[in-house]
């Protein structure tokens, strides 16, 4: 039996609509995973929880390095406390989409001021700012 060469419009899959559905499903899966990695949400089913912890730590460390690169004097002044304080800040303030590393570093400074953990800025450095 020959196949119908021109299926009716109702039978024809609408590529735009099916792509929109694929985008929605992908968005839900990626959002749920990222929320578990950076915003303390419960991990979606099926993932290795230990590996997600490793990934979450790795993301926080990357964010810490980016912030330290923006304000090296702050990382130096805080020493080993920098990573500890940044992790505490990062946990309470997940990175929002499109936020720059510079904005994140500024927001970390504000967090330190608010919590009374801001070290004194050395006067000699970066006088231009």
């Amino acid at each position: 039996m020959a196949a119908d060469p021109e299926p009716s419009a109702a039978d024809r899959p609408d590529p735009e609509r099916s792509l929109a559905g694929a985008r929605d499903r992908l968005a839900a899966g990626q959002r749920a995973l990222l929320a578990a990695l950076v915003a303390g949400a419960t991990a979606p089913d099926g993932f290795d929880p230990e590996r997600l912890r490793v990934q979450a730590r790795s993301l926080t460390l990357k964010r810490t390095r980016v912030a330290a690169a923006h304000h090296p004097w702050l990382a130096e002044a805080l020493g080993p406390d920098h990573a500890v304080l940044f992790a505490r800040y990062a946990h309470a303030h997940p990175l929002t989409a499109g936020r720059s590393g510079h904005a994140d570093a500024e927001s970390f400074e504000a967090y330190l001021r608010d919590t009374g953990a801001m070290p004194k800025r050395p006067r000699r450095l970066f006088r231009r700012r």
Partner: peptide
Amino acid sequence: RAGDLDAGHLLPVPRTKD
């Protein structure tokens, strides 16, 4: 990125047909 959140790093994509 996903929704309102940013990973700040490259995360693997699920290898699905979607």
